[in-house]
Amino acid sequence: MAANIFTPRAYIASQGVTNRAASLSRPFTAKLSKQSPRAAQFKPARSQAKTDRQGDAQLPVSAALAGLLAPFLLDVDPALAVNPLLTGKTVSLVHPAIMIFLFGSTAWTGWLGWQWRRARLIPAEVKELKAQLPKPDAEGNRPRSPLDQQIAELEETRKALTKGGYRDKHWNWGSLLLGLGVLIAIEGPVNTYLRTGKLFPGPHLYAGAAIVVLWAAASSLVPAMQKGNDTARNTHIALNTLNLALFAWQVPTGFEIVQKVWELAPWP
């Protein structure tokens, strides 16, 4: 009897509680049995297994994110994680090869633009020369003048320039120069970084960045030029002239880099 007094029912009976009160104590005893040490022993294990399963499901995503961020967070040579084809001579020489083409394209595009400018300005020049011709006499006859031959030559020149389609050619080559030029100008530094893990600030890099800015600035003036804004036209010409001069100045430094790539970069 002494041992049973420690059970909930025996304890209630010893205190003289009624059967009604004893029945009310049953949920309490059931709760105590559910929270027994043996049940509590297995509950953390089930929770831990559930957590492990969730961790296993999330592991691929975490691993993928870690793989993407690792090159930015760790001091690792980017060339070690890149396909060797992208860092070899073949791809590395794409930049200088296309830049030589773009240098010639810049001069060619400027010449096409100048021809279109001539065709556009000739009518005003002809009008000015015609105003200088001698006045006709009372019978409507006008004496011959050396200006007549000059006017005829200018009109023939304008016809030839108009048939040449220099305006459309200038626009087409300018669009190619802007699109391909910006692409290759970005490709060069990216290729350098993939090969060496760093960039080399200097005249070539700074001049290349300035050329891209001048391309964009000159192109942004086209809408105003189409509306007849002479200030925009003159600024467009000035920017492209500066661009060509900067391009020519940059060529020797580019050849120096090409020599280093040829000596140090592996094939292919």
Rank of each mutant, 00 (worst) to 15 (best):
D52W: 00
Q54T: 02
A21G: 07
A39P: 01
A49W: 04
R38V: 03
L32Y: 07
N19T: 13
T29V: 14
G55R: 14
P37V: 03
Q58P: 10
G16C: 10
P37H: 03
R26I: 09
P84M: 03
A40N: 15
A21H: 02
L74Y: 13
F42P: 06
R20M: 00
P27G: 03
N83L: 01
R46C: 09
Q35A: 15
R20P: 01
N19C: 10
R53C: 03
L69R: 05
K34A: 05
P37T: 00
L65F: 04
A21W: 00
R53Q: 06
A70Y: 07
L74E: 14
P44W: 10
L74V: 13
K50N: 05
A57F: 11
A57W: 10
A22K: 04
P27R: 02
D77F: 07
Q58L: 15
A45Q: 14
L32C: 11
L69M: 08
L74F: 14
P84N: 01
R38L: 05
N83R: 01
Q48M: 06
F42G: 06
D56Y: 07
L32H: 09
P27H: 04
P84Q: 01
A79L: 02
Q48S: 09
S33K: 09
K50A: 07
P78F: 02
A49S: 05
L59S: 15
R53T: 03
A45L: 15
D56I: 06
P60N: 08
K43P: 11
K34S: 00
T29Y: 13
D52K: 03
P60D: 10
T29Q: 14
A39L: 02
L59F: 15
V82W: 03
P60I: 09
S33I: 08
S25T: 10
A21M: 06
R20V: 02
L73C: 06
N83H: 00
A21K: 05
A21T: 02
F42L: 10
A66T: 00
L74C: 12
N83C: 00
A81D: 10
G55E: 15
D77R: 11
A21C: 04
A79M: 00
P27L: 02
R26Y: 07
A66D: 04
R46M: 11
P37C: 01
K31T: 09
L69A: 11
A45I: 15
Q54D: 08
P44F: 13
A70S: 09
N83T: 00
A22W: 00
L69E: 06
R38I: 03
Q35H: 13
D77M: 07
P44S: 09
V17M: 09
L59I: 13
F72M: 11
